[in-house]
Design a protein around this nucleic acid. Sequence first.
DNA 1: AAGTAATTTCAGTAATTTCTGAAAAAATTA
DNA 2: TAATTTTTTCAGAAATTACTGAAATTACTT
Lengths: 192, 192
Amino acid sequence: MKLAPSVQAFVLHFGEMGSRWGINRTVGQIYALLYLSKDPLHAEEITDTLGVSRSNVSMGLKELQSWRLVRSQHLPGDRRDYFSTPEDVLEIALTLLEERRKRELDPTLTLLRQTLMEQPSDQVEEHAHERMQQMCDLMEQVSRWSHDLQELNPKELQRLLLLGSAVPKLLKMKDTLTSVGGKKKKSGTGSD
Amino acid sequence: MKLAPSVQAFVLHFGEMGSRWGINRTVGQIYALLYLSKDPLHAEEITDTLGVSRSNVSMGLKELQSWRLVRSQHLPGDRRDYFSTPEDVLEIALTLLEERRKRELDPTLTLLRQTLMEQPSDQVEEHAHERMQQMCDLMEQVSRWSHDLQELNPKELQRLLLLGSAVPKLLKMKDTLTSVGGKKKKSGTGSD
DNA sequence: AAGTAATTTCAGTAATTTCTGAAAAAATTA
DNA sequence: TAATTTTTTCAGAAATTACTGAAATTACTT
């Protein structure tokens, strides 16, 4: 398959960015190609288009499926697997967020929780544990955000995305409204 | 410097996670060591503790400084550079977020914007451009979130982090309050 | 300015990751 | 079941990335 110049450029770019994103060049290129393609592609087509080996494509597709960024399907009257990416970019972003949480955050969170069960045995270790506690708390909050985002429906998510820096304003607004009685800010009502 | 078992485990873990985070093992270990250390360390100390070469530590520190995750300072009466990480984990997280945006998002955003200036020349390219437009829009929103978070003061940021899934509730609350007049939801007032 | 301590650079080597081609396995059809 | 098509596996080759030691540079002291 001959690619239009802009498509070609995008595919190559994704390949190069791959290393920054924790995937290799071929995996990046395969994803880009599938993302831009109107119709699902079979492995042979990807192989020809990218000019890499069939086995490399096979491994790349496997990895992309493990990230849940690519799905396979069958077309009637054709024995081959056809591959495609989800349509909705928001869905894609959520998947990416969750997979990265699993791979980049969870293992560390597990180690930190384990470690923090133990008692520090001297001054140095005590300070280290305090630092680990801080990191653990933060990672848990970030992790929770990630989980919570997965629960939202597309409408809510889209709104939240558009909100951006307006969130603190919203918080101030809430403060103003919920403190009408004149209570000082300190009382701990906040969460539910 | 002999490390306490839990500190040792954390340092090694960071080293292994490094490859998932886009840094190498030594860089990960150096960061972990500095993060847990009560006092700033000089390069020789890091070299001895980690058992890697002095030059490797030098390169690692340089990279961590390019990420703005490590700072150097001088102690009176000592010619050596001393290195440390910022105290505040929230500040660290913001720095990380911004650097990752710069490295992982901005280059692609630049390419997409350039490409989308051009006119697609056929059907296939037209579909591809629609997909690129979707990705571009999403990346711009994410990028804006990242920028906006940088502006918040620590208090606001901490509140936002704790909020999590309560945000949609807050949005619903806002809707209820701002539509008291009885207007239908469609009118575009939202942003300022 | 000369001498010393600390740091950086960089060419070469080591280690790791990516990729390929061939063979095996799995899936489908006859 | 045998033949055919498609996919996966995997050992070794190629490419890339990480690391070291030696030399050069920089920063400081006398």
